[in-house]
C-alpha cells in the first residue's frame, strides 16, 4: 500500500516529525511504500542543512535523510512555506527537494492513504 505523509511541524519543538518518521519506518519495514513525505508550515524546518543537535540526542534531519537514501523516499519541502521561513535551495540538507503545494495534493490523490502529523 502507498502512504502519503504530511509533516506540519519542525524538528525538536514538537514530536510530530519524530512520530511521522517512526510511522514511515514501520510502514516500510512492513513492506509498504511511502509515496511522498510533504513538509509544510514549520515542517519545512526539517530540511535544514544547518541543524546540529547535541550528540546524545537523535538527529531528526539525519533520520529523514537516511530514510530517503535507503528507501528512495521522496522528501518534498513546500516552496512558499520555505521562503517564509528562510528554507531555500541553498539551505537544504541532501535528500530533500523543494517544490510546490501541488505535490501535496498529488500525494493525496495518488497515495492509498494520507496521514498528517502536526501539533
Amino acid at each position: 500500500m502507498k502512504f502519503g505523509i504530511l509533516v506540519n511541524e519542525g524538528p525538536y519543538n514538537h514530536q510530530a516529525s519524530d512520530s511521522a518518521y517512526r510511522f514511515a519506518k514501520a510502514a516500510i519495514d512492513k513492506g509498504h511504500e511511502i509515496f511522498r513525505v510533504f513538509f509544510y508550515y514549520d515542517g519545512v524546518l526539517n530540511a535544514t542543512a544547518h541543524s546540529e543537535p547535541p550528540s546524545d540526542d537523535r538527529n531528526v534531519i539525519k533520520n529523514w535523510q537516511k530514510l530517503a537514501a535507503d528507501h528512495k523516499v521522496d522528501l518534498v519541502v513546500c516552496v512558499a512555506a520555505g521562503l517564509r521561513r528562510g528554507i531555500v535551495e541553498a539551505s537544504l540538507a541532501p535528500g530533500f527537494r523543494i517544490s510546490g503545494l501541488g505535490q501535496l495534493i498529488e500525494a493525496g490523490i495518488q497515495a492509498d492513504r494520507m496521514i498528517t502529523f502536526g501539533d
Binding site: 517512526r22 510511522f23 514501520a26 512492513k30 492509498d112 492513504r113 494520507m114 498528517t116 502536526g118 501539533d119
Partner: peptide
C-alpha cells in the same frame, strides 16, 4: 499497540483523520 500496529490500523482504514 506499537508503530507496526499503527501502520496496520492505517492500512485497514479507508481514511486517516489526524485531529490537530
Amino acid at each position: 499497540i506499537d508503530y507496526e500496529g499503527f501502520v496496520d490500523l492505517a492500512a485497514a482504514s479507508s481514511t486517516i483523520h489526524s485531529w490537530l
